[in-house]
Design a protein around this nucleic acid. Structure first.
Length: 287
DNA sequence: CTCAGTGTTCAGTG
DNA sequence: TCACTGAACACTGA
């Protein structure tokens, strides 16, 4: 479930594999018009092959490569997208379901199978990056100036880049009539926040997801801001490795809708739909 | 077989 | 015009 920490971790991973290198070959799935919804697979291939990777950048859940020529590729991981790296030669793409993987495996036992691979990038020195996405809500696009073009230009504050003071944030939330959970998910305000981070922030700051954003008191806005920043920084610092998130986080207990779901302190977890999304929260702790 | 679950966009409502 | 809601999108897995 790629939210800001997973996307930032992916960015660092592929930057390490590609920075300073020349892209030798790009292998897209030419039949995929969903992931390649604006630029065609052919156009992406043409834009990347032969270009040198200068670096990478990210805002919210979007990331992009900076090349020594335009346009640049922009990636969104959607709900199930991922960017994998191999430093040794030998990724093999396999489209479709498990049957395709078995067939590919049978053809070449030595090579790693990449389920649902949409794009492979191979550098001159043999490093490989692969974009995989089973459910195809992810997107691969091209842009001349990603940061200043829609949709990235429409994003709000990225908690890792620039974030408003508690005072300023309070002024913004005062004008919003939707439940705070829905406002936290608004990418035009909190770029990079997704469903689990929003729930975690509200859990840790003791605020009910149903509260209207405009009803939050200054002290609550301050707590929400502090928790939002600390949760994202912590998740990024451990490379979005869920096993290393603190045991006290709701994250470990929120999945599934088991009636008996409880926190690490045995508090009852309730599942409601807020802002159109399943919301896990703890009524005894969140007011 | 049905449906939840992921994030974004777009149509519809107020 | 603006703010907000809810469905649609593709697909797996429970």
């Amino acid at each position: 479930m790629p939210e800001l920490p997973e996307v930032e971790t992916s960015r660092r991973r592929i930057e390490k594999a590609l920075k300073g290198k020349v892209i030798a070959e790009v292998i897209p799935d030419f039949d995929d018009h969903i992931v390649f919804d604006q630029a065609s697979a052919e156009e992406v291939k043409a834009a990347l092959e032969g270009a040198k990777v200068l670096g990478s950048a990210r805002k919210g859940k979007y990331l992009w490569l900076k090349l020594d020529r335009k346009p640049w590729p922009v990636f969104h991981l959607g709900m199930t997208g991922d960017l994998e790296v191999s430093t040794k030669k030998g990724f093999v793409k396999a489209w479709g379901g498990p049957k395709h993987w078995e067939a590919a495996r049978a053809r070449n036992k030595e090579t790693r199978i990449l389920p649902y691979c949409r794009l492979r990038i191979v550098t001159k020195d043999g490093s490989e990056v692969a974009f995989t996405d089973p459910r195809r809500f992810g997107r691969i696009r091209l842009a001349e100036d990603p940061e200043n073009e829609a949709p990235i230009s429409k994003l709000g504050f990225d908690p890792l880049l620039k974030f408003p003071t508690a005072l300023k944030l309070g002024e913004i939330l005062e004008k919003r009539r939707a439940p705070i959970k829905a406002v936290l998910l608004d990418q035009g305000l909190f770029a990079g926040v997704g469903n689990w981070i929003a729930d975690e922030v509200l859990f840790q700051s003791g605020i009910s997801p149903h509260r209207l954003a405009s009803s939050l008191k200054a002290v609550e806005v301050g707590a929400l801001r502090t928790k939002l920043l600390s949760i994202i920084r912590k998740a990024v610092s451990v490379g979005a490795d869920y096993d290393h998130y603190p045991a006290s986080w709701l994250f470990h207990y929120r999945w599934g809708k088991a009636k008996e779901a409880v926190t690490h302190r045995k508090e009852k977890i309730t599942h409601d739909t807020v802002g159109g999304r399943t919301t896990a929260w703890v009524p005894t702790r969140q007011k």
